[in-house]
Design a protein around this nucleic acid. Sequence first.
DNA 1: ATTGGGACCTGCTCGC
DNA 2: TGCGAGCAGGTCCCAA
Length: 281
Amino acid sequence: MPELPEVETIRRDLLPLVKGRAIAAVEFPPDPRGLRLLRRYPSAAAFARRLRGRRIIDLRRRGKYLLFVLDSGEVLIVHLGMSGRLFLSRPSDAPPAHLRAVVRLRTGGALAYTDPRKFGEFYLFSAARKETAVNPFLLGPEPLGKDFPAGRLRGALDGRRAPLKAVLLDQKAVAGLGNIYSDEALFRARLDPRRRADRVRAGEIRALHRAIRAVLSEAIRARGTTAEDGGYRDGFDRAGSFQLRLRVYQRKGRPCPRCRTPIRTARIAGRTSHFCPKCQT
DNA sequence: ATTGGGACCTGCTCGC
DNA sequence: TGCGAGCAGGTCCCAA
């Protein structure tokens, strides 16, 4: 569910709430299998023990991962999978459905993590280790960052015979794009998602580069996309608004905003892609 | 090495 | 009303 703009919105919401505050307790009720911890952790209890008392000194984002930087030198990493939500929990409320974890802060307040589909994961890395093996860090460039010039996108597409859409979904090519924003960026760049990546010309790559950055920036401003099934919520458990600005995603059969041709879909790399068959070539 | 397909989960909608 | 099929924002693992 959550792609870069959704994760970034949650980060911005939660940062002022958690920065500088210590973790009082982490609870994984009551079936710890409802949340995948990093495999090498023997138990949820051991995981929680490592976190207790640690101070959160920063909250960062890398691709679709949230990184709680701790004063111990460790980093608590949260990936929301398809259906994860991480939000400020109000104690007056009844416990939310599909609650998988609670992070209580020492000065009061708590974060709730819910996830019906259980694809989300928590990781705990030492700072030294985080750059190695395991992986959230084996990601491609941040598309909104300084190290993502158009040439970097060109390098990512170079030599890849897979469809453009498949490469955009590859987190090693560019970090943070998912099904929604890949489709929306390809529409804005007027590129057919089925095009072989290595056959996209330089001018088209520049248009795609611009489109990726524009759509992600606009989606962050709109606080993310809460699509038809309503899965995503921000750090305060509220919906986003970018669904109102989607041009092709979940608009099958509706007129293309540019040429009125009905939007169609195709299965690419195992995912449904939405595009205009006339103006995306 | 790259690519595509299935697996992992649950909930919801649709058609019969 | 009930039930199975199909689908959903992501990633990993495996075989070709």
